[in-house]
Simulated assay, not measured.
Amino acid sequence: MLPGAPWLLAHKSMLAVNQPRKISLYGADYVMWKDTVGEIHALPNACPHLGAMLSEGWCEAESDVYDGLRLRTSAIVCPFHALKFDGSGCTVLPGSSKKTLPQLKPLELTIQGDFVWSYGEYEPKISIPSVLNEIANTYYFVGHTADRSVETDLLTMLLNMHDYNHQNGTHRELFRITGVEFHQFIDQGHHSQAFYDMPTAPYSLVEKLRKPDLFLLPSTIKAHLENHFPSLVIFHGEMPLGKAAQCHIFVPEAENRTRTYILLFGQAKHPAFKVFGNTYLKFGKVIVDQDVDILGKIYPDTPQKIKLNNEVGMDWVRRNFESFPNVVSPNLSK
């Protein structure tokens, strides 16, 4: 599960104020919540009293004093005995008026704008990629979608995402992709880029009138994938009305369970582009649903006896997995 890699646990928009959410990383469960001033907190999810899931509890607003200032924040409340824990893991026991020492060790988070990153309990081995901050500075945030836990290991999930030949199989339905015309793969260690085109079979006018969303699908999907090992793949799409950056996120929840979700950003060339934001989110959800479906129909221990052209992205993933956190030759640019 690549300990020492940074993982994007959430975009702040995915956390409702004072609504606890269960987050898993490296086989450990945490409760995460956002308080009324937008601060993010994360604690181990098991109450230190009798192990109840704190994420099944609720949040209560409270005041706290920091450097002499009284601040508004919130605490997580256990659903079993209503013990309340603040963001540092302290509680007040019944019959007492003073907070205890920390009973839970907070999960260390790195907050960059609206992005909530964590290395889990491990020492950082590679840096957090800056690309999402750059996108957020130049694109507007459309929304998030397809937040799912998939019963598969991280390596299998990443191999699927970097399998450029599966587009006209797994994603044939809806997009009607007829083939993959691969152009270039640029290997830059833990960063890579792939460029290819995907011609599609056209929908009839009648089909499009019945389902107007289909008017947004191009005759050829021009793919530019920007990859940041191991947690991020960005699909850069350019359309007549604007640009989109569809960011696919991966988080190893457990040895054989991987979470994935999409953050979508847009850059409008025409005001009408923003009208279609929800439609592009729907398309992203379809992509994830199709990937999850095929991953559930694979015999994972089958030896690979056939190698197709353009598996360079999969080779890149395997090489980085084997050498992590180091970057080794060969350079696979072609």
Rank of each mutant, 00 (worst) to 15 (best):
F85E: 00
E181H: 13
N168A: 04
K98A: 08
P102K: 09
G179E: 11
P79W: 15
E62G: 07
S63I: 03
F182V: 06
D86A: 07
L93K: 10
D64Q: 10
N45D: 15
N168V: 01
C59W: 11
T110F: 15
L83I: 00
S130C: 05
E108Q: 14
V77Q: 04
R70W: 03
M157W: 02
L107C: 07
A82L: 10
C78L: 12
D147T: 03
E121K: 14
T156N: 13
Y122I: 00
G68P: 06
V180S: 12
N160Q: 09
L54S: 02
V65F: 10
S55N: 01
F80M: 14
D64H: 03
H183D: 12
K99L: 10
V116Q: 09
R70L: 09
K125P: 01
S74I: 00
N133G: 12
T91K: 04
N168K: 08
E108D: 12
I177W: 02
Y119P: 02
H81N: 06
P94Y: 13
E60M: 11
V150P: 01
T152P: 03
E134K: 15
V77R: 11
F175A: 06
V180T: 15
S130Y: 05
L107P: 03
E62A: 13
T145G: 03
F85P: 00
H171F: 13
L71T: 02
E181T: 06
P79I: 13
I135N: 00
P124N: 08
L107F: 07
K98E: 09
